[in-house]
Design a protein around this nucleic acid. Structure first.
Length: 407
DNA sequence: TCTGGGGTCCTAGGACCC
DNA sequence: TCTGGGGTCCTAGGACCC
């Protein structure tokens, strides 16, 4: 048996936990730059303010109709996510976090979906749903059905399976997206049950392995490949303004590089290759989105090494005068820090220096905060400084100056 | 549908080899 | 150097997920 615990409208629910006055009010959470709606609670969804809507198009109507909008506050969401995960870990021997608001769980014998759900919801204040079923694909369906039930829990077994799959639209199956749905619809498939009962021989000849695995999973056969290894990391942003100056672009890429370094070292990885990309708006004028990468002399997660790479790559890719609206940096060909081997060409002294420097930098950050020390080319700016977040809520749980107050 | 930011996996097709 | 066949490796890009 596999379980899935996921939070309902997670970001919206996080905002509501600290604002009891919003108990029955519609809430949406906006992306960086207040660009689009990234999360909407049930009420907001029912009013038509769904994920993906451009905020500038709906802002006026949403306000008139009493919708509360928040800029995203990832610090808050991450903290509440950690709380949910630690409760799940306490209750179940084995969990596999899948996203910020979801985890697969391997429940101990005798555990009931609804009991687990009650524990998590009661101790965090975040409403969750819990499903139990035979495979990951099926448990995704179970948790979706759980959301419609008063107890927030649903266990899929051989008795209710046919019925449940018949109720599930193709596009609600995990692994079936927009493109496959369109294709399958033409062939007469409508529900998860149709797909499960397809002619597998025919499908195996015509469709990619990913879809075949989904069909096996619908049949109760575990087919998901397990990998706990990261393959790449990325850090990127869209700007609130446009950038047509190369030095400014290098500076902004450096901010992303700092972010990427943190991500790598937090997870214990070094990048063997490094890439940069920047792009103009897809909606205005000529589109330009150059991409370039290089292999680093030695695997690294050291910001200055990345900045050197940025300084080499950017002049080749950058078209002066283009109104770039965003940029990204990538870390590829990751190796674990423990696996670092001094390469033939590499200077051992340099590696030692990098390591001790990284250590000092993280100590300073630990003591004085994340923004205490920076690479010079970032001009002392943080990622957040490039974003517009007019509607951000407080950091209720992580910043001493912004703690929730109780009267 | 696609005005965010982050990921994973798979495939097609080119380069290059014999 | 464009008249064959077959393999491997790499990369861009598509499809999916949250």
């Amino acid at each position: 048996m596999i379980g899935l615990c996921d939070a309902n409208s997670f970001f919206s629910s996080c905002e509501r936990v600290f604002r009891p006055d919003l108990k029955n009010k519609p809430i949406v959470v906006l992306s960086n730059n207040d660009g689009i709606v990234v999360a909407a609670d049930k009420m907001a969804k029912n009013m038509g303010f769904t994920r993906g809507k451009a905020w500038f198009e709906i802002e006026k109507e949403a306000e008139e109709r009493g919708v509360y909008a928040f800029s995203s506050n990832y610090t808050l969401y991450q903290d509440l996510s950690n709380r949910i995960m630690s409760i799940l870990e306490r209750e179940c021997p084995n969990i596999e976090q899948y996203s910020i608001d979801e985890a697969f769980i391997y429940p101990p014998k005798g555990m009931k979906a609804k009991d687990l759900r009650r524990i998590v919801t009661d101790s965090t204040g975040i409403p969750t749903s819990v499903g139990f079923a035979k495979t990951k694909t099926l448990v995704k369906i179970a948790s979706k059905l759980a959301k419609k039930r008063a107890d927030g829990a649903y266990t899929l077994d051989s008795e209710n399976e046919d019925e449940a799959l018949k109720k599930t639209a193709l596009s609600d199956v995990w692994g079936v997206g927009w493109a496959w749905e369109k294709d399958l619809y033409k062939k007469g498939f409508r529900t998860a049950k149709d797909l499960r009962d397809c002619d597998l021989d025919y499908f195996e000849k015509r469709y990619p392995i990913t879809l075949i695995r989904t069909i096996y999973e619908l049949r109760g056969v575990e087919a998901h490949v397990e990998s706990d290894r990261h393959i790449s990391f990325m850090s990127g942003i869209s700007f609130k303004d446009s950038v047509s100056d190369i030095d400014e672009m290098i500076s902004r890429l450096s901010i992303q590089a700092e972010n990427l370094s943190k991500k790598l070292s937090k997870n214990g990885y070094l990048a063997s290759s490094f890439g940069v990309n920047f792009f103009t708006s897809r909606f205005i004028g000529e589109i330009d989105r150059p991409y370039g990468s290089l292999i680093l002399n030695s695997p690294s997660n050291y910001t200055p090494t990345f900045v050197e790479a940025i300084e080499r790559l950017t002049p080749v890719l950058f078209k002066e005068g283009m109104p770039y609206r965003g940029c990204r940096v990538f870390a590829f060909d990751l190796i674990r820090e423990e696996e670092r081997q001094i390469s033939l060409f590499e200077n051992g002294e340099r590696v030692k220096k990098e390591e001790s420097m990284s250590h000092i930098v993280s100590e300073i950050m630990g003591k004085y905060g994340r923004s205490a020390i920076h690479i010079a080319s970032s001009k002392g700016r943080l990622k957040e400084d490039l974003m517009k977040r007019e509607r951000k809520s407080q950091n209720y749980t992580t910043d001493f100056n912004e703690l929730a107050e109780v009267y």
